[in-house]
Amino acid sequence: MKLLTGNDLKTGFVTWWTGADWSLHIEDAADVGEAGEAILAAEEGARRVNAPYIINGEQTADGPRPAHIKDRIRALGPTVRPDLTLKPADPAAGDWVI
């Protein structure tokens, strides 16, 4: 599957295209198929996202997962600071990242 990701223009936070909007959570990400470039251009033009790009991913039981380690770390947060990730309370939250 193809995922669309970028950073929020104002906050810089990593965001994922849900099909209709942007979410901080990779679990909300939607497969953009061939439509990525068009969505990317429109969303960037409207300043709803900064520096967006399209990545490969796969659908798993827990939700979409980026193919590349860099985007997996982006999806979670720094592996060395679990307290700063999106799921600080869950020690196993980062198991799929590495």
Binding site: N7, L9, T11, G12, V14, R47, N50, A51, R74, P78
Partner: peptide
């Protein structure tokens, strides 16, 4: 001007960089 859409990221990037602001993995 960047937030208002008067300049693009391509134009803004060298300006923010000269002020030490990068866009990194998780945020600015």
């Amino acid at each position: 001007r960047r937030l208002a859409g008067e300049i693009t990221e391509d134009q803004f990037k060298p300006l923010r960089l000269m002020n030490g602001l990068y866009l990194q993995l998780h945020a600015y």
